[in-house]
Structure formats: C-alpha cells, structure tokens
Design a protein around this nucleic acid. Structure first.
Lengths: 241, 241
DNA sequence: TAGCAACCTTGATCTACATCAAACTGGAAC
DNA sequence: GTTCCAGTTTGATGTAGATCAAGGTTGCTA
C-alpha cells in the first residue's frame, strides 16, 4: 500500500544470498558502469538484455507513449534490480531506463552462466523472488492510480521515503530528503508538476512543510498515516495553515 | 500497448511445453474447481498459495482499498495463470480473485513437486516466462493509465478484444462480444460506468456502435487503430453521429 | 407476456487535475 | 556578489471524469 509507486531502496540485493561459487561466476560476467544524470542506461526493446543492479544513485524506468508523452513506470535505487527474468531467458529490455542522479549500475550477462542445474535453481529462485516483488509493487501502483487522489498518492510517497530513513523516523516528526526533482516525483505519481505543487499545499494543514525544494518536514508521521487509512479527508479548499 | 489492461486469452497455457513426465506429476497435484459467477476463487494474502490456471470463463483480480473502493487489477480468461511465482516459492496469494462468469480453474500445488533439479529448471523457466508476460501487461496498464484518456483506453480495450477473435477480424469491420458487464469494463479501465457510457459515445463518430449491451460493432478496425497511433482526436463535444 | 430487477444511459452539476502564462526561487557559473 | 537558468509555485481558466438523480433497456421469471 504505502510504496508510493516507488520500489524501495534496500541495502541488500538479489545476489546477496547466492552461494559464493555462483557469485564468483557472475562476477566474471559483470560490467560495472557509471552514468551521469540524464544519461540513458538501456532502451526498451534492446536485447538480449543483461541483469541490471543499481549500486548507487537513482534511475527511472519509463515509456514514451505514441503521442510522445513520457510515462514514468517507477524509480529504483541502490539494491534494486531490473530485467532479471529477461536476462535469464534471453529476452529484451522491458522499458527505457535513465540515470536520474549520478549512478553506478552492474550489468550481468546471464547467458550461459547456468549450465549446471544447481546454479539455475539457485539463481532462478532469486530472480523469481525479485520478479514477484516488482509485480507486487506494480499492483500497488495500479491500485493507487485507480483509487487515490493526487495528494493521497503524495502522502504515500512521502511516508514511503520516510520509512526508508528508518534511522531518524519511526513515529513522531521527521525530515525527508527528496531523492530527485519534483517534476519526476510528479511523473511517478502520474500528475503534472503544477498539480504536485498543489498537492503539497493540501498536505500543509497536516503538518507537511517544505523548507526547501529538496527537503520535506513531516510533523507527525502517525497523523499522516492515519490520514491514509481512515478515509478522513483534508479540506477541499485547504491552503497553508 | 493495445492490451487494454487485460491479459489476453490464449489457447495454450503455462504447462503446454513442459515434458510429459513433469505434466503427469503436476496432474497428480491438481484440483480442478468450478465456480459460479461472483464467487471468490482466492483471497489476497491466502497462503501458501497454489498455481492457478483458468481453463474456462473469465476471472477478475482486484484489491479493496482502505476506503473500501474496489480496484480491478486485471481480468483473465482461458489459458491465463496467476500466482505462479508465489506457488513455486511458497508465498501468498497476491490479489483477491473472483469468478466473473461461470468458470473452471486448475489449482496446482507446487510444493514438493520439484525435488529434482531438472524439473525445477523446466518449470521455473515456464513460470518466469509467465511472470515476465504479466509484468509486461502491468507496465502497459500503468503507461495507459498515466497517458491516455478514458475513450483512448476504451479503444485499446476494444481493439484488444477484436484481435482475440482473429477469425473474423483482421482489418475492415468487425463484431466484438463483450465478455462481461460494462461496470467491470469500467473498472478495468479505471473509470466509472457513467464515464464508460460517455466514452462509447465519443467513439461513435469513429464507427463504434453498440446494437446491444453485450455487442459492439466496429466499422473499420484500421481507422480505430490509426486513431490510437496518430494523436488524432475525436471532437471534444462529439455525440452520436 | 407481464412484471420485475439489474444493468445501462442520460442530464445536470461539481471537483480534481490540466493547461497556460506569469512570477518566484535557488543553486551554478562568472 | 550578480547573473542566469532550470525548477518550482501561483493564479486564472478549461476540461475530463465523478457524482447524483432520473429515466431507459434488457433479460429473467413466472
């Protein structure tokens, strides 16, 4: 529910629980590439594709619609992977991926890696787990797009970010660093930047303030969480309190 | 693009290319269940779940949001499977599934089926292929929700249905049988029934007419397809021609 | 075939979000 | 610092879709 349309950064990744022997094998097929912000990591349809794991920074997956409009599918950060299944089965890249911030990405060529059934079993299990988790996130995203308003999705997005910085945020107040520009946040939420700005205004009466473009302060996480669970709504015409 | 948010019915299913020996093994773990329209096949969170394959009829996957609103994730028909990965890895059911029409569903218990690595390799490959295809469909759906209007999504939905009845529909005119009630079509498209009704009206000037609630006639498939590719728009105020 | 209930459509109105234009901000380069 | 420019906000207005209420259809049952 509260994934805010964004796959969460984790400290671990898909390779973490593989046996050392297989990891060594994969390491030999790995190319680590650094990307400048805005550069393209792979294009939808490219193939045969590699397994990609974000080591550092943020990337966005997106499509360009026939009308030329960009549809952000999701954003990913360190620990997240993509194209897992396609890499193992010899398929193509499922969406275009751009670096949002400076970032470092592992490209792992899985072709021929799993000549032994044992390897295949272990690796495919890890890959299926990752695929299931992506599926879960996408289902949440669709649910959210179909049932929540823009400010509700924004609240979910902020709560999700907050729960990632567990360090300083369990309950009570909390400072959230926005990982990328608001235009992209708008894209993730499926709205325009102007509407995002107004969505932030709607959350102000609920203790969500923004001392600068990249920082958001939440007075009371539980209050915001309740807002998203109770069906309790902010004033339709609400402005800064 | 043109999947209309709906995973297409196929004559074949996930099991079709498995070796006979494995299929026999799976058959021993299979329970075939018939469902009346409106009955529930499984609940989100149920577990450990089974692999489910629709043999006949239509089912819908959905979630109930905290506010009690139903969000249709997708609909599936004969040949489509769900919960594949969760069944193999011992996870839970990812969404609630209801029978939309009378239908027959295989439930396959995958626990313990793959004691041999060989089986696992073959089965997991088939499962990953199915998972990748679902992922692809979900990405299309998100793209569609974020970039297309209600009538555009309806056009995609109809074109998708039309392409399934390939028999009578390649180009030119074509009759589409709606597989379920319009209220559910609205849910699939992420709009309300009233809006669906108006979306149909918008498509009338483009040769989409409806002699009865369950039948839609498309004068010229290519014209409708062009409409979705060219960025050419129907009149904002368009009514029945 | 009459009656009923569920489904669907239509009209009037309201609201959320988009659009367009203008002003504002804040960080990078000079 | 000043300048610049992209990113952001704000205001005015337009439009798609939601909502609410009423009226049609369709198909089932008797």
């Amino acid at each position: 529910m509260l994934d805010g349309g964004m796959v969460r950064a984790t400290s671990t990744d898909l390779l973490d629980h593989l046996p050392e022997k297989l990891r060594a094998k994969l390491r030999r097929n790995t190319r680590v590439v650094s990307y400048a912000p805005g550069s393209t990591i792979c294009l939808q349809g490219d193939g045969p594709t590699t397994l990609k794991i974000v080591q550092e920074g943020w990337v966005k997956l997106y499509r360009i619609s026939p009308e030329g409009e960009e549809a952000v599918i999701t954003t990913l950060s360190a620990g997240s992977s993509f194209d897992e299944v396609a890499a193992l089965l010899g398929g193509n890249c499922g969406a275009t991926v751009d670096a949002v911030t400076a970032c470092r990405v592992q490209h792992i060529d899985l072709r021929g890696v799993c000549d032994c059934d044992d390897c295949y079993r272990v690796l495919s299990t890890a890959i299926m787990a990752a695929a299931a988790s992506h599926m879960h996130a996408m289902i949440n995203h669709v649910e959210q797009l179909k049932t929540s308003s823009s400010w509700e999705r924004l609240a979910d997005f902020l709560l999700c970010l907050a729960s990632e910085n567990e360090a300083d945020c369990d309950t009570g107040n909390c400072c959230v660093d926005l990982p990328f520009e608001r235009k992209l946040i708008a894209g993730v939420l499926g709205i325009k930047p102007e509407s995002l700005s107004r969505a932030f205004n709607r959350l102000k009466p609920y203790g969500v303030t923004s001392p600068s473009h990249r920082i958001v302060h939440i007075d009371d996480l539980d209050r915001l969480r309740d807002l998203r669970n109770d069906g309790d709504f902010p004033e339709t015409t609400g402005k800064a309190a």
